[in-house]
Simulated scan of single mutants.
Amino acid sequence: MESEAVLSLPVEGRWLFVIIILSADDVGLFEATEFKLARRADVNRDLAGKLMQMIADADLIRLYMVDGKRYGFVPKFRQRLQIQTSKHPLPPREIYQDDSDALNKINKLATRSTVGAPVGSSLTTDGQPPESELELELEPEKKVSESSTPRRRRKATDPVPSCPFDEIVATYHEVLPELPSVRVMKAGGPRHKAIAEFWRWVLTSTRNDGQRRATTTEQGLAWIRHYFGRASDNDFIMAREPRGAGHENWEADIDYLCSERGMRRVIEKTKERT
């Protein structure tokens, strides 16, 4: 409750966050319906929805949908009770993959029953660990070959290096000085969160050959420098081709380049540099 993210919320938002924590199950999952949370927190339903979005923007909770119903996950929940079952459908893996405690608990749950299987997962349900890379990487080091020089890959559960916001922004300014400068960067704000998600994607995604784009901070920054360089080669992004009607004054910026739409434009529609 002393964190900057919590203290940045209005008083009603902090109280709602307490209600969410008390409502969450052992994994940190909760039913994120405005009606129930509003009643528990004794606030207006519309206000509850706005506060919940503020809490999500601060990355104190992460929301997801299952069968048209909204649920939430509290990252770094780290409840130490003996875990038996989850009361709610488990979230997609990208929601919790950076939280090693939740990752281990959810994998244990998901191997027991299809009811709790994460959305989009291929985990087995007969009590045996699945043959997926994610679960294999959770096995002890004895799984590694006894060769004198084993090749160690970065584990899927290894923590992603902290996002170097300042370095990313400085690289953006250096490589793309023609685009709008970054002058506002509020911790926990939409831009801050978008850059953090972009960084996590760079450090956890793989190329077509199955190799990770980056595994260290240095490699991640090098990849982003190359990415911004490719963006500078794109005529649409750099406004070297006419805009469509109604978008004549639109400009690409760091928010666009860190979004999925921007990444598709740069990675899929820009010729690779040689």
Score class of each variant (00 low, 15 high):
1 M>K: 12
3 S>G: 11
12 E>S: 09
21 I>G: 06
22 L>R: 12
25 D>Q: 08
25 D>M: 06
30 F>E: 04
31 E>K: 06
33 T>N: 08
38 A>Q: 00
41 A>M: 00
41 A>F: 00
46 D>N: 00
50 K>G: 04
54 M>S: 14
59 D>V: 08
64 Y>T: 12
74 V>T: 09
75 P>R: 04
78 R>V: 03
81 L>H: 12
92 P>W: 05
93 R>S: 06
94 E>Q: 10
99 D>A: 06
99 D>F: 02
103 L>A: 15
103 L>C: 11
104 N>Y: 14
105 K>I: 15
109 L>A: 03
115 V>I: 07
125 T>L: 07
138 L>A: 10
140 P>Y: 10
142 K>Q: 13
143 K>I: 15
143 K>F: 13
146 E>G: 12
147 S>K: 04
147 S>E: 12
147 S>H: 08
148 S>R: 08
150 P>L: 08
152 R>E: 05
155 K>T: 09
156 A>F: 11
156 A>V: 08
166 D>Q: 11
167 E>G: 07
168 I>V: 14
169 V>P: 01
170 A>L: 12
172 Y>G: 03
172 Y>N: 09
179 L>D: 07
180 P>E: 03
197 E>S: 14
198 F>N: 01
198 F>G: 01
206 T>S: 02
210 G>A: 12
210 G>N: 02
213 R>I: 14
214 A>P: 04
214 A>Y: 04
215 T>P: 01
216 T>D: 06
222 A>Y: 03
222 A>N: 15
225 R>M: 05
226 H>N: 15
226 H>L: 14
234 N>R: 11
249 N>L: 13
249 N>I: 05
250 W>K: 03
251 E>F: 10
253 D>L: 08
254 I>G: 02
258 C>K: 00
259 S>M: 07
260 E>A: 14
268 E>K: 10
271 K>E: 15
271 K>W: 08
271 K>V: 13
272 E>Y: 08
